[in-house]
């Protein structure tokens, strides 16, 4: 189990505290510069003594250096040893720890099989695709034998198709029961796909945490609602909002709210359409399935269920 207590970024009074459950994947969600990488590096021991403490298995590791913490770290860039083949890349932490030949052999084969790179053991990193290189990096991080694996936006550099494929597999690969996985991303979809928990960060502060669906349903503030929404949340007034996917063009029940708006922009990708509407000085986005053919400048009546309206200022979602 991993726990951070009052981990504060330089200049921040309020620190981040969170308990990362064993055998779970926690997705740390935030925009650029929100502190995702800072949190990842702090857990791995790469930040120079931030205030606050970090506990692994009930032991305070804050004073330990990165070498002693046994936290695996996977980067956005594909980091491997270019002159070593895949086998030796994965084996490198074991060799450094002076494990016996049998243990190394067994661990490497096991990890390679789990990450589906067992056919590539004799190859060199530059002979692999980006996805395969990242699998090698993950296997190497796991080979350290630590109980914490931190992944800092590991799939950002992969092309779209490969990212989808690896994302689907990651959940199975990483749920071994004893591993604590911290996965940072700026894409709310990752939280739903991978996360048992989601941790929302902004300005190096913890905004809200909880199960992804709970946070989605009960966002504490407009910022958290916005972070968990793609495209962002439509503002009704200072403490109410509406998600783009909850707005329709036709009335579904008598109690529906009605908004008179004007269509100012239209995007579509075939399966989904995004209507940019102007309602009372606000720019709204409406997400509809399928293609939409409406001329710009048309007045639109937008409908939403009362129950779908997000009310902020409520209590924070539970863990």
């Amino acid at each position: 189990m991993l726990e951070v207590r009052e981990l504060a970024f330089a200049g921040n009074e309020e620190g981040v505290s969170h308990r990362f459950a064993q055998g779970s994947i926690t997705v740390v969600l935030g925009r650029n510069n929100s502190g995702k990488t800072w949190l990842a590096r702090s857990i791995a021991g790469l930040e120079v003594s931030p205030p606050g403490t970090i506990w692994i298995d009930g032991q305070d590791v804050s004073a330990l250096g990165a070498r002693e913490r046994k936290v695996g770290l996977v980067y956005q860039a594909f980091v491997n040893y270019p002159t070593l083949n895949v086998y030796r890349n994965i084996a490198s932490p074991l060799i450094a720890a002076k494990r016996s030949r049998e243990v190394i052999e067994r661990t490497v084969r096991e990890l390679a099989e789990r990450l589906q790179i067992d056919a590539l053991l004799r190859r060199f990193p530059d002979e692999l695709s980006g996805g395969q290189q990242q699998r090698v990096a993950i296997a190497r991080a796991l080979a350290q034998g630590g109980k914490v694996l931190v992944m800092d936006e590991p799939l950002v550099n992969l092309d779209y198709k490969l990212r989808e494929e690896l994302e689907l597999q990651l959940r199975d690969l990483l749920s071994t029961g004893e591993l604590v996985v911290v996965y940072t991303t700026s894409d709310p979809k990752d939280a739903f796909k991978l996360g048992d928990h989601v941790l929302l960060l902004d300005d190096h502060r913890l905004l809200q945490s909880g199960a992804p669906l709970d946070v989605y349903r009960n966002p504490a503030t407009i910022t958290t609602a916005d972070l968990m929404s793609d495209p962002g949340v439509n503002v009704v007034d200072t403490d109410t909002g509406l998600r783009p996917e909850h707005i329709t063009l036709h009335r579904r029940s008598a109690s529906d709210l009605v908004f008179e708006s004007v269509l100012v922009g239209l995007e579509t990708n075939g399966s989904e359409s995004f209507l940019h509407c102007r309602w009372s000085e606000q720019d709204w986005v409406v997400k509809l399935s399928g293609m939409v053919d409406i001329a710009l400048g048309t007045g639109l009546q937008l409908f939403a269920h009362q129950a779908d309206v997000l009310r902020f200022g409520g209590a924070r979602g539970g863990d």
Binding site: A44, A66, L73, Y75, Y81, L84, A137
Partner: peptide
């Protein structure tokens, strides 16, 4: 990140030179 990864792997100074820097 190349240096940090080697450090997390527990590589010695010589190994960092040999496998991270020299190549």
């Amino acid at each position: 990140p190349c240096y940090q990864a080697a450090m997390l792997d527990g590589a010695s100074t010589w190994q960092v030179f040999r496998y991270v820097e020299l190549p």
